[in-house]
Design a protein around this nucleic acid. Structure first.
Length: 587
RNA sequence: CGGGGUGUAGCUCAGCUUGGCUAGAGCGCUUGGUUCGGGACCAAGAGGUCGCAGGUUCAAAUCCUGUCACCCCGACCA
């Protein structure tokens, strides 16, 4: 694992650095970082961690927790993830992926192993999106992994866009022989007549099928989706955000008219917006890409852009209007009602496992992942507390009874998913594992609860140690509202973050300052979190955009569909501009 | 492909400058015990061809040469 700064046990401070018991102090005094900066207070300081600290300090005070030897050292909060978001955002991200048990690096460079909890998330993404695609008239199909090299060459811009990152298959056999280093082993044999490209995207191979399927205007529109893996040989990769192989869905449609195809493009963009906001609780800006950021071969590319907690933009989904470019390349032609032979108008659109990265960077905190209830693999985790063996059977029975009851309730297109965690682990370990995985609700049932006919309920969007006692009846009656309350709270919190770091900027000096860290960047220190979304006017000159990217690392994320029109001078050139665009640093 | 760095236990690393006992630590893992509405403690234990190949030497994790892999920073990208 490439985590030079992580501790030996991976995810929590060792004894020497543990936070001292904060006896008699207000929780605020446990907060180690300066409170004067906007970021520390608003972004990370104001969230649930402070509550967790307060509760934890309180518990320690009354549970007689010893003042550890660490009390001589500067206070550091005991977060489940080290480093924290503020200390080192990119390292924090990697540690969350690991602590939440989502994925790990594979023996193959740039590829990842998606572990059960991570894959369950993706399965939920798939389930919901697939239903949305079906509801908008699409059907699933599957096209080959291998694309003849000549297919990729058909569309000029497309070639240029992908050529540099394609994996190429040149042989179809292995045989015993001498390897490059002279040692015996398996070597490729049976060279192919024509090399095959492992699909980086499937426009061309699907186009070949569409050309056969479309003859008449009656065959249109043709609305197809496929769930697949694709390969883009990236130089630098990060789990979920950019991997050499990733999982995605790609929709491909063909239409009789430009208007219809454009309408489809926008319809699917809207599907993505709804999915991001209402299911992932991730607010997005929808907009059109500039020429520089367009999909190679597309006439227009639209995207949903989300702001991560480090204020950088993540392109979370794209929808392309391809015009007749690919129809001409693949000869997708039809006879219209007047008997004229015409090229079809096509679209394509996709979202990928990158969304999991977006989910993490939108919602996770310094204690690990936080999963929005509507997409959570498990909504409620029930933890039996069995200090004495003799009471264990009764407690387990109570747990199963509650689980059974909750599982009968319908929620977000399925039923409430409940897991009773009876693994033979220490209670604290077990609880923290579920905190790190981000399960929305934890329920604890122990002997004292059982006696009083109560259960203890904790929410992942609140402090780790906060608990509320209620009867199983009350919980069953309240759980659906509770999950929706968490879902809404997560969106509101994320939206407030976006709003806090989005601003209209008309002064070039302010613009530059906005994207410049307050402290000078040094080689080995992580970049200070800064910037956000600048809504500024732009004259759309591609040369200016390239220059800006070079100088500040800032790009035009999109020309917003809403709230962009506002004539005035361009922020970069002063020339007349008609629209504000979203400028940001991006993933 | 340019610049920098690292390869020693499952993970994170120490040891190398100045070659020399049976190659170490923390965490994790196993077992036993004490604790336990909480990420505890004590004890015992499993686990390593020191990236690979040559060379120097009585002796190489350590010195030399070559090689491979990976990481970080750049150019490219969902």
């Amino acid at each position: 694992m490439p985590c030079g700064r992580s501790r030996g046990d991976g995810d929590r401070p060792s004894r020497g650095t543990r936070r001292p018991a904060c006896v008699g102090l207000d929780a605020r005094d446990c907060w180690p970082w300066p409170r004067d900066g906007e970021s520390s207070v608003d972004d990370f300081g104001g969230d649930r961690n402070r509550g967790a600290d307060a509760a934890s300090c309180y518990l320690r005070r009354f549970s007689g927790a010893p003042m550890s030897t660490a009390s001589k050292q500067p206070a550091a909060p005991q977060t489940a993830i080290t480093p924290t978001r503020e200390q080192n955002y990119t390292e924090w991200y990697q540690q969350v992926v690991r602590a939440a048990d989502l994925a790990e690096n594979s023996p193959v460079r740039g590829c990842m192993v998606i572990k059960p909890w991570g894959y369950a998330l993706w399965e939920n993404f798939q389930r919901v999106l697939d239903r949305m695609f079906k509801e908008t008239g699409h059907r699933n199909a599957y096209f080959p992994l291998f694309i003849p090299l000549s297919f990729l060459e058909k569309e000029a811009e497309h070639v240029e866009g992908f050529a540099k990152e394609c994996a190429v298959v040149t042989h179809h056999r292995l045989q015993a022989g001498k390897k490059a280093d002279g040692r015996p082993g398996l070597v490729p044999a049976g060279e192919l007549e024509e090399p095959l490209v492992v699909r980086p995207t499937s426009e061309t191979i699907i186009g070949a099928s569409f050309a056969k399927w479309v003859q008449s205007w009656r065959d249109l529109p043709l609305l197809i989706n496929q769930w697949a893996n694709v390969v883009r040989w990236e130089m630098r990769t990060r789990l979920f955000l950019r991997t050499a192989e990733f999982l995605w869905q790609e929709g491909h449609t063909a239409h009789a008219t430009e208007a219809e195809a454009r309408e489809e493009t926008m319809r699917m963009l809207e599907v993505y917006r709804v999915f991001a906001e209402e299911w992932m609780a991730m607010p997005v800006v929808t907009g059109r890409k500039t020429d520089g950021e367009r999909f190679p071969g597309a006439v227009d590319t639209f995207s949903i852009e989300a702001m991560m907690q480090d204020r950088k933009a993540l392109q979370a989904g794209t929808s392309h209007f391809l015009g007749q470019n690919f129809a001409k390349a693949s000869e997708i032609k039809f006879l219209d009602q007047a008997g004229t032979l015409q090229h079809a108008w096509t679209t394509s659109w996709g979202v990928s496992t990158r969304l999991v990265g977006g989910l993490i960077m939108t919602h996770a905190d310094d204690d690990g992942l936080v999963v929005p209830p509507r997409l959570a693999p498990t909504h409620v985790v029930i933890l039996p507390i069995t200090p004495k063996p003799e009471t264990a059977p009764a407690i387990h029975e109570a747990c199963e009874k509650l689980a059974k009851r909750l599982r009968e309730l319908p929620y977000a297109g399925r039923t409430v998913e409940v897991e009773v965690d009876r693994r033979d682990l220490r209670g604290g370990d077990k609880m923290w594992q579920w905190v790190k995985k981000g399960a929305p609700v934890r329920v604890e049932i122990g002997p004292r609860d059982l006696e009083q006919g109560l259960v203890s309920v904790s929410r992942r969007d609140r402090g780790v140690k906060e608990r509320e006692a209620m009867s199983p009846d009350a919980l069953a009656g309240r759980i659906l509202d509770l999950l929706e309350e968490i879902q809404k709270g997560m969106f509101d919190r994320a939206k407030a973050h976006v709003d806090r770091h989005s601003r209209k900027i008309d002064d070039p000096k302010e613009f530059r300052a906005f994207f410049t860290p307050s402290k000078p960047e040094t080689d080995n220190a992580p970049t200070e979190i800064h910037g956000g979304f600048a809504w500024s006017r732009f004259c759309m000159d591609p040369a200016e955009e390239a220059k800006l990217k070079n100088e500040l690392g800032v790009t035009v994320r999109c020309i917003p569909l809403q709230g962009g029109e506002d004539p005035g001078p361009c922020i970069l050139t002063g020339k007349p501009a008609t629209h504000r665009v979203v400028f940001a640093k991006a993933y």
